[in-house]
Design a protein around this nucleic acid. Structure first.
Lengths: 184, 184
DNA sequence: CCTCTCATGTAAGACGTTACATGATTCA
DNA sequence: TGAATCATGTAACGTCTTACATGAGAGG
């Protein structure tokens, strides 16, 4: 949907080839975006056909040739237009863990707790890598810095919530008061 | 990907028809899931073919007929198997606003602030409707209650972050120290 | 020698969204 | 009369993921 504009935005910042685009998106937008070559290369081709970017082949000595893309004036206009428009739809979180979580009342409680603990480990690792990245890169650009802070806040909030969930669910197990499950 | 299991999970809780499935998903998983009939009806058909659910037609007097689906034993097994398996991939947030946000260093600062303010209004409205739902529904099921709390926490965190972002960006504008933009 | 990184691509399939079609009843 | 709610569905179109294919150079 907006992969196109994400690429355009990166090319607006500097010329890049497809491989680098993926790298930057993974490093910078990794917590909110996933991308793969099956999206990048066809999109770059399409952007070129639409006249929003141009391509030059660059030969390299000790690495494969690459195709450097630059944004055109028409591309700049498209990008600016998109940027100044209010975003279409709101945030969507897709997390297979959260979906399972809602149904944990129907599952073996001990197994549910195990999965929660696994998840805590995952988020803890995520948080420390984000923290590390935040501390060890210069956060010169205010927007990029704020985004990194958001990633950290999100992670911290999830962890706090998971710990609370774990405690409450564990308490329910030990007090053995099976209640009727009820969604809505 | 797991729409199938979401439906199975709801049918595990009680018999439902497609229309109701959508309603429940929107109300309960609304902040992490979006769904439409184009997904539900074909999925129900497929689940039936796989023998995971069965269907009965129910005639109604003052409303159109409906097709009530029930989970089968095979369906229960499939659901339990899925539930006890560690979730595949991690959380993915898709938010067109956040994507724009990263690029706001390239945009007209005043316009960027306007968009941020719009976003604050959106999240404020979201929060109060979630708060309202939390206060006015019985939260008998611990997992459903915890999920609602997560939604509220998420909302509060986003608002706090947006307010901070707004203040910092406004401060930058008034101090007029244009810095070089830099992603990584 | 084997694996990693660099680099570009395609094809098939899964998944999701939008828009349309139908039609009765209820409520203002 | 018109809109909203209840209810089911499909077709077309987009988007995303997975898996494959290719190949050179660097480093252990």
């Amino acid at each position: 949907m907006s992969v196109k504009y994400a690429i355009l935005g990166l090319l607006h910042y500097k010329d890049m080839h497809g491989y680098r685009v993926k790298e930057v998106i993974e490093n910078e937008f990794g917590f909110m975006w996933s991308i793969n070559y099956g999206q990048i290369y066809p999109n770059l081709k399409q952007l070129e056909q639409e006249g929003l970017v141009t391509k030059i082949d660059v030969a390299q000595r000790n690495a494969p040739d690459k195709k450097l893309y630059s944004i055109t004036e028409k591309g700049e206009e498209a990008f600016t237009g998109w940027l100044n428009t209010a975003p279409e739809r709101g945030m969507l979180i897709r997390d297979p863990f959260l979906l399972k979580f809602v149904f944990f009342s129907f599952s073996d409680k001990e197994r549910a707790l195990e999965i929660i603990e696994e998840q805590i480990r995952v988020y803890t690792a995520d948080l420390s890598s984000r923290q590390h990245r935040y501390d060890h890169k210069q956060n010169e650009n205010i927007h990029v810095r704020l985004m990194r802070e958001l990633g950290i806040s999100l992670n911290e909030m999830m962890l706090a919530w998971l710990e609370r969930a774990k405690t409450e669910i564990a308490a329910e197990i030990s007090s053995r008061r099976p209640r009727k499950a009820g969604i809505q």
